[in-house]
């Protein structure tokens, strides 16, 4: 009996060790993924900078809400100008009906006038899984030390209506503003909302 308890304890310890890899305060999992042009981009390339990860899927109405309203592009531009690296990641599995090739995603982003550093194709979904990204959009903010300081929704209006962007409280802007001002992030974790990531 005691050996069984010991095993259970060991398993629990291992599980606890892997806990919350994507939670605020945890180290951001590293990755190297190709961008829409097939060029590999690594998180490590941006060490020393603030990085925003935006989980995206052009087919998702929640993502469309934030692009149609120009909300996402506005954030990308606003923070890129302040030295933040913005990476959009599409983790849609290559076998899913909503999968898009690199050029297709690039065209869509171009049509939206997006302003991110790069759009990454995580078609094996490995990075999405490593971050346990659940929805599109879902936002992560990583500080220069490689620590996740925000994980969750883009704002507090759970809807697909572009009009709701006005008057919504934007969590990403709040987190980045506080962090860049050297303050701790007040709201470090929220429930992401949107379509499921198409694993």
């Amino acid at each position: 009996m005691s050996t069984r308890m010991a095993t259970i304890g060991l398993v629990l310890a291992i599980l606890a060790g892997t806990a919350s890899a994507q939670a605020p305060g945890a180290a951001a999992p590293t990755f190297t993924i190709n961008d829409t042009a097939g060029k590999p981009i690594a998180l490590a390339d941006f060490k020393g900078k603030y990085v925003v990860l935006e989980w995206t899927n052009p087919e998702c109405p929640f993502v469309q809400k934030h692009y149609v309203s120009k909300n996402m592009q506005g954030l990308q531009k606003e923070w890129s100008e302040r030295g933040v690296v913005w990476l959009s990641i599409n983790s849609t599995n290559a076998n899913h009906s909503e999968f898009k090739t690199g050029p297709e995603v690039a065209n869509w982003m171009r049509a939206q006038g997006s302003a991110q550093k790069a759009t990454l194709l995580d078609s094996s979904s490995a990075t999405g899984r490593a971050y346990a990204a659940k929805t599109t959009p879902q936002m992560f903010v990583i500080d220069p030390a490689g620590t996740v300081i925000y994980n969750g929704a883009i704002d507090d209006k759970r809807s697909t209506n572009p009009a709701d962007v006005k008057g919504a409280s934007n969590y990403v802007r709040a987190a980045l503003s506080e962090a860049l001002a050297g303050k701790p992030v007040t709201v470090a974790s929220t429930s992401p909302y949107g379509c499921s990531v198409k694993y």
Binding site: A16, Q22, A23, Y199
Partner: peptide, 12 residues
């Protein structure tokens, strides 16, 4: 309670 393990999204 404390935050649990990152969900295993590996198995369908």
């Amino acid at each position: 309670v404390v935050p649990g393990a990152r969900p295993d999204l590996a198995t369908t």
